[in-house]
């Protein structure tokens, strides 16, 4: 599903050039659950942003579902994001002015889904995430675990083919963290491809395999945990 070849990303400030990604290559098959690990600053998040079409590489190619998307327009990226990709962040990133249900509904609005269908889908996914009773609350009224469940609900509400999770348990205690990992595993078992960036060896065990990065380079791959 994802084909990454010789990917490079360079950050430039006035005086210093930093290679965030250096000749990174790996593939992710449809239905796989892949964890990307490595120390802080190794380029994990940069890689995830490129996969999520939020950032562009400076070299190499990136193929998404058979299409070369290395250098497509911003409009096309937005299109691909909203139809195929769901995001889960460490800091949840819910919109504070919107209720739980409204936050989950948002991707459907941008997709142009009709109101009745939106309502149904939101209800279904909230029930699935066991957060239905909190549907009219605002994010700041929820616990961290609940917030992350809402974020996962939002990521999956339009049934994307790929979920990108950036340290999804980083801000959670262990029991809440486990719950979220169980959720992701369930989604993966239902057929969704998942790429997750994590620091946690514990979380990485949920994945089918681990890609380890160091200083912008892949140092180990295909390690089954």
């Amino acid at each position: 599903m994802l084909q990454i070849n010789h990917l490079e990303k360079i950050y430039r400030t006035e005086e210093v050039q930093t290679k965030a990604l250096n000749n990174v290559s790996f593939t992710v098959q449809e239905g796989e659950f892949v964890a990307i690990m490595g120390p802080s600053g190794c380029g994990k998040s940069t890689l995830l942003n490129i996969i999520g079409l939020l950032d562009e590489p400076d070299g190499g190619t990136f193929t998404f579902a058979g299409t070369d998307v290395t250098h497509v327009t911003e409009r096309r990226r937005a299109e691909l994001r909203k139809t195929h990709i769901g995001f889960v962040f460490q800091s949840f990133n819910l919109i504070e002015e919107l209720t739980v249900a409204e936050n989950v509904e948002l991707p459907l609005i941008y997709l142009g889904v009709g109101a009745t269908e939106r309502k149904e889908k939101v209800q279904r996914v909230l029930e699935k995430m066991q957060i239905m009773h909190r549907r009219n609350h605002f994010p700041q009224q929820l616990s961290g675990g609940q917030q992350q469940r809402v974020a996962v609900a939002r990521a999956v509400v339009n049934s994307p083919r790929l979920i990108l999770a950036d340290e999804p348990t980083g801000n959670l205690d262990s029991s809440n963290g486990n719950e979220v990992m169980e959720l992701l595993t369930e989604l993966n078992e239902a057929g969704t491809t998942i790429v997750m960036v994590t620091h946690s060896e514990h979380d990485a065990r949920y994945a089918h395999r681990v890609v380890r990065l160091l200083d912008g380079q892949v140092v180990l791959e295909n390690v089954r945990v």
Partner: peptide
């Protein structure tokens, strides 16, 4: 950022 990530133009 969130809205754009979700797909807003």
């Amino acid at each position: 950022g969130i809205r754009k990530t979700i797909g807003a133009s």
